[in-house]
Amino acid sequence: MRKIVIAIDGFSSNGKSTMAKSLAKEIGYIYIDSGAMYRAVTLYCIQHDLFDGDKLNESALHNEIQNIKIEFHLNKDTGMPETYLNGVNVESVIRSMEVSSKVSQVSAVAFVRRAMVALQQEMGKAKGIVMDGRDIGTVVFPEAELKVFVTADAEIRAQRRFDELRSKGDAKTTFDEVLENLKSRDYMDQTREESPLVKADDAILLDNSYMTIDEQMQWLLNKFKQITTN
C-alpha cells in the first residue's frame, strides 16, 4: 500500500487534532499538529514578554524566531506525539486560554508562517503523515493525496472546547468567553493576509457537528482506503 500525505484543515475546536491523531495511530502514520507549532511560538512570546499588553511586538519576535525550536516526541504511555518547545514538554500549557487568545495574532505574522511551513514541509518529505491545521492542503502540501476540510457549528465547537478546559481543571473560563474567542479566531483565520483559512478546491468537506468519534473515524478510513488501494 503506497504512502500518502493526509492534510486535514478547518476551523478551531472542531476535533481536527483528535481525529488526525486517531487516524494516524490506526493506519501507522506519523501525526503532526501544525496548530501546536503556532501555539508553541505563542507560548514562547508570552514567556519572553514579546507582547506589549495584548499586541505582539513583531520586531522583537523576528529577532527571536531563530531561538525557537519545536519538536514532537511520542508519549510512551499514550502512543501519541506531544509538543516540545526548546526541549520542554509544553503539550498541556499550549492549550490554555492565555495562549488561545493570542495564537491567531502570532500565526498571522508572515515570517512566522514561512518558518513553520518550511519545518512542516521538511517533516512531510517521506510521506506517511497526517497533518492538521489551517493551510495544510492549500499552502503546506497542495499536492496532498487526501485533503479534508472540517467544519462544525460554532456553538458546538465552543462547547467541546469548554468541556476540554473543564476536564483539564480550568474552572474560571466561561462558555461565553470560549465562544467569543472562537468566533474571533475564526474571523482572524479567514481574513489574515498570509495563508488565510480556505477550503482547497479538491478538499472533501466534513461537517462533524453531529457525528460521533467512531463515525468520523470510519468516514476517514473509508476515504483513506479509497485512495491508497486504487
Score class of each variant (00 low, 15 high):
S13Q: 09
I129M: 03
A171E: 15
E98H: 09
T174S: 15
K76H: 08
R192M: 07
E91T: 13
I68R: 10
I204D: 05
E98C: 03
T229P: 00
R160Y: 06
S96M: 11
V103I: 08
L146F: 03
V103H: 08
L205W: 00
A7P: 05
F72N: 09
A200E: 06
R157Q: 08
E143R: 04
A126V: 05
G15W: 00
F162T: 04
L85D: 11
D214G: 11
M188G: 04
P196V: 10
G87C: 11
A36P: 03
K102Y: 01
A154T: 06
K3Q: 13
Y31L: 06
N63M: 12
P142M: 06
N208L: 02
I227S: 10
A40P: 01
H62F: 07
N89R: 04
D135R: 06
I65M: 15
M131K: 03
L85V: 03
F72Y: 13
E71M: 02
D163G: 06
L85C: 08
A20S: 15
K199V: 00
K172T: 14
R95I: 10
R113S: 09
E145F: 02
L23E: 12
V150D: 00
A158E: 04
K16I: 00
K223H: 14
I4T: 07
I213Q: 14
N208D: 03
E71C: 05
Q159V: 03
D207L: 03
V99L: 10
R39Y: 10
G137P: 01
N208M: 02
M116K: 07
T212C: 12
G124N: 09
R192V: 06
S107C: 09
G128C: 07
K199F: 00
L165A: 12
C45M: 04
